[in-house]
Amino acid sequence: MADIALHILVFLFLAAFLAGFIDSIAGGGGMITIPAMLIAGIPPLETLGTNKLQSLFGSGSATLAYARAGHVRLREQMPMAVVSAVGSAFGALLATVVPGDVLKAILPFLLVAIAVYFGLKPNIGDVDKHRRMSVFLFTATIVPLIGFYDGVFGPGTGSFFMLAFVTLAGFGVLKATAHTKLLNFGSNVGAFAVFLAYGVVLWKVGLVMGAGQFLGAQAGSRVAMKNGARIIKPLLVVTSIALAIRLMADPSHPLRVWLGW
């Protein structure tokens, strides 16, 4: 596409900063960056590819911030990140085979269910609970499944990782957030590699937005570590519901098309 004007790049930078801030705490940054790129006139396929590039900066920045504070041990958790990347790569490769309309149709209901769970469960805090699934089983099943979803479609991946860590791994909210960012970074790497191979990444846009994501994620992760579950839980609830509404507001959403809304 033609060279992008400076004011458009500034707009995308600001959108990425906001997305990085929110995503580092509760996920859902794609709810901001993808519409922003489409508004800027970037074609859908290039939007998906470029979104993975700029997301690397946000998830990577947040991961480093949480790791420096001791909330995630990178060396110990790297196998999970690699599995997430492999799952996401397969998801991106098989995106044309997987029934995307079905995913789009059910996603708003899944996000609302996640919001209800975190909103109404009073005992979810920053203290770890009983683990319901072994590390090996969690890594071999849940991680590649959510990574695969991120490669196929994407929105809500952070919320799904959060839910899995809290309910199955027994993590407290802050620890779950920190580990979610690492696995999200892995899934971003896997999908990005596929989109890069297909040549649908706009480097200038991706790097400008990546800078915004990096700074936003640094700010957001600091807020999350300072306030813990007190800020993460409500923002996760609000973000999940907002993403569900954003998806249903799209006239091309499969459910609206099927029902003739």
Rank of each mutant, 00 (worst) to 15 (best):
L6C: 07
L6R: 10
H7K: 14
L9Y: 09
V10I: 15
F11L: 12
F11S: 11
F11P: 02
F11Q: 10
F11H: 03
L12E: 09
F13N: 05
L14E: 08
A15E: 08
A15Q: 05
A15C: 13
A15L: 08
L18S: 15
G20L: 01
G20P: 02
G20M: 04
G20D: 00
I22A: 06
I22H: 04
I22G: 03
D23M: 05
G28P: 05
G29C: 10
G30Y: 00
G30V: 02
M31T: 13
M31W: 04
M31N: 07
M31G: 13
M31I: 15
I32C: 09
I32W: 01
I32M: 10
I34S: 05
I34D: 00
I34A: 01
P35H: 08
A36P: 05
L38Y: 07
L38W: 04
I39K: 12
G41I: 01
L45F: 13
L45V: 12
L45E: 14
E46P: 06
E46C: 03
E46M: 13
N51T: 10
N51W: 03
K52S: 01
Q54L: 10
Q54M: 13
Q54I: 04
Q54N: 07
Q54E: 11
Q54F: 03
S55W: 09
S55T: 12
S55I: 01
S55F: 05
S55A: 15
S55V: 02
S55G: 15
S59G: 04
G60S: 02
T63G: 01
T63V: 08
Y66E: 08
Y66L: 03
A67W: 08
A67Q: 02
R68T: 05
A69L: 04
A69F: 01
G70M: 03
V72Q: 01
R73I: 04
R73V: 12
L74Y: 03
E76Q: 12
E76W: 09
M80D: 06
V83A: 09
A85L: 04
V86F: 11
V86P: 05
G87S: 01
F90M: 07
G91S: 03
G91M: 00
L93C: 10
L93S: 06
L94R: 03
L94Q: 09
V97I: 13
V98N: 04
P99Q: 12
G100Y: 10
D101F: 04
D101R: 14
L103Y: 03
K104M: 13
A105T: 15
L107V: 14
P108W: 09
F109Q: 10
F109H: 11
L111D: 06
V112G: 12
V112Q: 07
A113V: 12
A113C: 11
I114V: 15
F118P: 06
G119Q: 11
G119H: 11
G119W: 11
L120Y: 15
L120D: 10
K121V: 13
K121D: 14
K121T: 15
P122E: 15
I124M: 12
D126R: 09
D126F: 07
D126N: 09
V127R: 13
V127W: 03
H130P: 12
R132V: 12
M133G: 06
S134H: 11
V135R: 14
V135N: 13
F136K: 14
L137M: 15
L137Y: 11
V143S: 05
